[in-house]
Design a protein around this nucleic acid. Structure first.
Lengths: 220, 220
DNA sequence: TCATTAAATACATACTAATGGTATGTATAG
DNA sequence: CTATACATACCATTAGTATGTATTTAATGA
């Protein structure tokens, strides 16, 4: 086969297949050939034409999946003139969180930290980035500036809350038995956050309940 | 070469080499051949005679390294008739924590979450085990039973504190710039723990300072 | 505006080096 | 004599590369 008129479609197909496989089987558990086998007719040549390594495929696949969510969250924060405290609450409101959970739910990563170790590492790293470069820390600092938040250690609080929210509250890499236990985690997290000056809002419990429902809905 | 009189020495050599390499280069970054090359004269046959897979070597290496530390910690808790609250504080006292840090410091894992993703996953998993089967949750429940601790969500509190202590306070997989920032994390963690009824004690700051010194001492 | 050509692109095919693991051989301890 | 502790030789799979080829796109010229 010669040149294709719409290479973006090929790229999209590759990334779709890759994302699903990486989630289901982990990074090491997914071979390039596995991906190729899902791209009927296509061969490794196509893959290595568009991406220079497995690593790059992995990153591209997840960046692409996350992009609209990140964008959306950024948009909800930019609009309107809210105080920092209000923005903080909105960060943990259902409208900000649920879309991301739906993405994860579609992928349904293996509930085994070792098998999902690379995804886990990404979420781990991402938690720090989220607090530093992302939304959380800026929002907190905004709240401190406008007087709506009283937090003595904004950076530390942001990191801790991000980590707990991403790796503990969300049952991505470990099974979580009951909705009640998830709600207990949420309440616990809210209390701990409050102790360092961060009011995540009453909606957190509601958000968590929705997360549970999305995560465990029928069809999985 | 035929049969060796002291095969345990061979096993020990393999595990020593493996532990160092796994820490420095990560799991995927370390090949069996890398390990073999450090065992002068020995070959892959020896390795696969004593261990049936790379995975098993990895687990054995870390189990062996952790064993004395776990044992020691268990011992300090068993002895004496302390209240749960006192035991909790002791769990985060220098004498309980520093030996573990010294082990980690000797290994000096790569400060890159992705490269160290398998170790990260182990620590992650370990944080839950620590709270469930390990020391933390039992100690908290003991404290609740004897009235020295007032905690409404012992399991959740234990998990959250474990996670933060293992993956955030300890700068295993991410560089941490200054001692002050590490102390800030410790203080933040202590505040958050206090909010859910866990008093980690005043020694936490002291412990943290010692951890920093051990971790960043000259010679590294 | 349209045919011609040159160049860049989108793949397919065939191959390589390294890796985890196995099968088997052999010398020594018990 | 048998089980063990290795060494040697080998295999299948893997990420990645080198190269070949058809087609699209851009440049050119009338």
């Amino acid at each position: 086969m010669g040149r294709n008129k719409y290479p973006e479609e090929t790229v999209a197909k590759i990334l779709d297949a890759a994302l699903e496989l990486f989630c289901a089987q982990g990074y090491e558990g997914t071979s390039i050939q596995d991906i190729v086998d899902r791209l009927d007719g296509m061969t490794k040549g196509a893959v290595y034409h568009h991406f220079k390594s497995k690593e790059e495929i992995f990153n591209a696949a997840f960046d692409r999946a996350m992009a609209p969510i990140v964008e959306r969250r950024r948009a909800t924060l930019g609009a309107g003139n809210m105080t920092g405290a209000q923005k903080l609450k909105r960060l943990y409101a259902p409208e900000s969180v649920v879309p991301q959970i739906e993405l994860w739910a579609r992928m349904h990563p293996a509930a085994d930290p070792v098998k999902s170790s690379r995804l886990l590492a990404m979420q781990y790293q991402g938690s720090f980035d989220e607090s530093a470069d992302g939304c959380l820390l800026p929002v907190i600092e905004e709240g401190i500036a406008d007087g709506s938040i009283a937090c003595k250690c904004p950076r530390e609080a942001a990191e801790a809350v991000s980590l707990l929210a991403n790796l503990w509250l969300l049952p991505l890499f470990r099974p979580l038995e009951t909705k009640d236990r998830m709600l207990a985690r949420a309440q616990c997290l809210a209390q701990m956050a409050a102790a360092v000056g961060l009011d995540l809002g009453n909606e957190v419990l509601q958000t968590t309940a929705q997360i549970w429902d999305v995560w465990n809905r029928a069809g999985w």
